[in-house]
Write a protein that binds this DNA or RNA. Sequence first.
DNA 1: GTATATAATGAACAAGTTGTTGATTAATCA
DNA 2: TGATTAATCAACAACTTGTTCATTATATAC
Lengths: 217, 217
Amino acid sequence: MTDKMDRRQVRTQQLLRQALLELIESKGIDSITVTDIATHAQVNRGTFYLHYRDVADLLEQWKEEAFERIRARAVQLDLNEAIACALNDEPYPTSIRLLEEFLANGDFFRVMFGPRGDLSYMLRFKELMRSNMYNKITYILPEESEQLVPLDYLLTYLSSANIGILQHWIESGMKLSPREVSLIMMRILCLGPLAATGYKLGKIQLPRISTSAQRDG
Amino acid sequence: MTDKMDRRQVRTQQLLRQALLELIESKGIDSITVTDIATHAQVNRGTFYLHYRDVADLLEQWKEEAFERIRARAVQLDLNEAIACALNDEPYPTSIRLLEEFLANGDFFRVMFGPRGDLSYMLRFKELMRSNMYNKITYILPEESEQLVPLDYLLTYLSSANIGILQHWIESGMKLSPREVSLIMMRILCLGPLAATGYKLGKIQLPRISTSAQRDG
DNA sequence: GTATATAATGAACAAGTTGTTGATTAATCA
DNA sequence: TGATTAATCAACAACTTGTTCATTATATAC
């Protein structure tokens, strides 16, 4: 990315990004002006416009860059492998690599997933995880008539819980190692929803939810 | 709220709120100006300032009002009752009341929890649920040495998954009834984490995660 | 229904932000 | 070192903001 660029440009962009991050943290994205950023970064306001169209553009490029790095790792996740690890109570190596990628951009994600953060951005990651799971999950599920919960809700649950744990890890200063977080995810997620999908494990047999049911148990 | 208010004021505030919601949906909160809202609502710009300090103030009051209505219901939730329902595969009545409250403000929450939504707002609800659970959960947990997952991660998981399911329900047009959603929540959440906390259910015994562990199982 | 109170309008204000331009200065690359 | 390219600075019109004040319109109370 920064290869083959004039060192002055690299410096300017770093200063602008750093200033943006600090401003988001202190007053939220809504009220940040180009003037704010330029002042804070000690860069001429005109210089800002040599690089970006407006504040949203600066943030958007950064978001895109960070997302792409995560996506490259996330597509390598395989639900079957994850479950295999979970059953052995081991962390899932591919998910460790993924968490390391978040760790590498910790400052950025801490702000973007924090109280001044960006919901649309978080939803993008959730959707990434969701669609990634959908491709694999049908092999695992019992017959549809055995499902206790509609598939879309199950996927929502899996991605929400994962992203939630990720967010908590980031917010709390990333004190646990990626390996430890991965193990937590394995334990919490696969022991849970496996049972919820009607998968072996429990002895309790529960009827399926129909969308118009009153009470069928 | 709208009692004892001049009908003109009520009308103006409704117009302003409606305009704000439509503008957030179409272009996001960041670039909305007072001029935008006034034009869209067909209200004089000066009139806006008779009611609110700025755009953020208008949104903030609305958020606060909606949050308070939810909070009043949420504090009545009791984790023990919820688990009792879950074990009988029944929806939890108190959570149905809560979901009905969301339904009553569906238009607002659909925008606030959607792609143009507000992360800080969503985190407030997550925190509400989290702190509410914390007060009750210690009675349920096995001894600390038996816990498979740190308590803060377990709480994060529970609240994230719940809020995630809620968000999916709202986003997908609230087609299921509150009762059906409640039942989904019961099935997905309590079958899962109960096992994950080391609660009876499973025959598999897994060691506890220590924050510096390498591998201890 | 009429009178009184009060909400909404419309016009005008300085102050601040935006996005752009062109001339000048400074840093980097080869 | 010289040529190239980035950053700076000042100035611009257009727009938004937050406020004021006189005027018009509409509820509410009697």
